[in-house]
Nucleic acid binder design. Structure first.
Lengths: 195, 195
DNA sequence: TACGGTGATGACATTGCGTGTCGTCACTGT
DNA sequence: ACAGTGACGACACGCAATGTCATCACCGTA
């Protein structure tokens, strides 16, 4: 062991997760977290931009993965097919392994409006990454934003259902949710009545 | 004039808007805002839950209006038709009158991540209101959430385009954006290839 | 006129988040 | 042997946000 115990970041995340699970987010102070992790308050803010971020640090890579995956799909593919394949790949290789942690975190977020805000921002970051991928493929700004946010909505709704279900796979739920939306939008035939 | 000048809330909003426009959100302190408004710091937090909220206080009514409008549409109407009519009505009677203020606020939000978080939460509140309306009409939870978030996406994308455009009406842009999404989702025919 | 209730505000104290700054010291390469 | 690097501790500080009590115009009532 060197001058300090290794894995300071992971120790902070673990300590924060435990304490917030016990007392709630607002009732947990940063000094309490760092005390359990054996570090100082100042060090906490060297690893995480603010108190909320300690629960969402792992999400930072999601947007990067999306960017990576979208760039790998052939440019000839249809826009939505690109994202669908990317989301399926992520469902299998990333989310499926973290199901239990995501379940626990959802419970923490459900009890705190501030955490919900942060979760929405993380979701927006994924949307922005998808949007950039669409723009790189030549879509106009409106379509890129529209499709990107729709994809994130699809993923979000699917994940909610996935976390409530013990048996089904996320990739299958994403596919079903996508078909549900397509049917719901297409089935409504009164879209041209402008008056 | 009574013991205190009236319109304390409005004075705070105006002072905040001016100062933040000049110096940016992070560089503006609450004492500076209250000083310009002729009030104390404590009074600021009696009117607004936190520093960000002073820029979004007017949005509180949007979700309420959505709830009101959705309840007014006949129960026999198709789900999406309900929202489309509600959004059109709001576009005409609410947003169109506030275009310039919304433009200025968007500029402030663009420069501060914290304000963007708050904007996303306000958007989520509208989504929740729409979702409740759908649930009251008998939709299952998945469809209700899916359609509600899609509606908010449509409104958001439409508003972005609307604020960039001096001539077009929001209601027309919403209609076009809806048709764009419908076409984009329906045109993609590779949705059944599950591997 | 007198009088008690109400409600918005001021004044003051306090907690905790987040940052700036400097010092310490194991690790690393040469 | 020696300077550079990088992670952490120690300390101070500004500001957001909350709790608590005092103040006093306004209002209804007798």
């Amino acid at each position: 062991m060197g001058r300090w115990r290794p894995d300071a970041r992971e120790r902070l995340q673990r300590a924060a997760f435990e304490l917030i699970s016990e007392r709630g987010f607002a009732a947990t102070t940063v000094p309490e977290i760092t005390a359990r992790a054996g570090l100082t308050t100042r060090t906490f803010f060297r690893h995480f931009a603010d108190k909320r971020e300690v629960l969402f640090a792992e999400d930072a890579g999601v947007a990067a993965i999306v960017t990576e995956l979208m760039a790998r799909v052939p440019a000839s593919a249809a826009p939505l097919a690109v994202v669908r394949e990317s989301l399926r790949l992520m469902a299998d290789t990333y989310f499926e392994e973290r199901k239990e942690v995501l379940r626990q975190r959802r419970e923490l977020v459900r009890c705190d409006e501030g955490l919900r805000e942060r979760e929405l921002r993380k979701r927006a970051a994924v949307s922005d990454a998808i949007r950039e991928g669409f723009l790189a493929r030549g879509l106009d700004a409106t379509r890129a934003t529209l499709l990107a946010e729709t994809c994130v909505t699809l993923l979000g709704v699917s994940m909610a259902e996935w976390l409530d279900d013990d048996d089904r796979y996320l990739r299958d739920i994403v596919r079903d949710t996508f078909e549900t939306l397509r049917a719901e939008l297409g089935a409504d035939g009164s879209g041209e009545s402008n008056g």
